[in-house]
């Protein structure tokens, strides 16, 4: 995964069943959430997801870190 100066890391979460929670499947580097979504959809296509979201890593708050 590459990271241009104008890009940031987006964590990718998805689920393939309605009764499952979203779980972390990977990350992408992208200049916008829209492009991150395009990348995530094409890279993490191993299942027929029913939901996928991307979250900027910078927006995530660490709670426990050992």
């Amino acid at each position: 995964m590459s990271a241009y100066a104008d890009e940031e890391i987006y964590e990718v979460f998805a689920r393939n069943k309605a009764d499952q929670p979203l779980h972390h499947v990977g990350y992408v580097s992208a200049p916008s959430p829209e492009l991150a979504g395009v990348y995530a959809r094409s890279i993490y296509d191993e299942f027929m997801w029913i939901e996928m979201i991307v979250v900027p890593r910078a927006a995530m708050h660490s709670v426990i870190e050992t």
Binding site: S2, S29, I43
Partner: peptide, 13 residues
């Protein structure tokens, strides 16, 4: 493509 992500997207498209 310029990045690995873009290459994967090009492949999918």
């Amino acid at each position: 493509a310029p990045t690995l992500e873009a290459a994967t997207a090009a492949s999918a498209m």
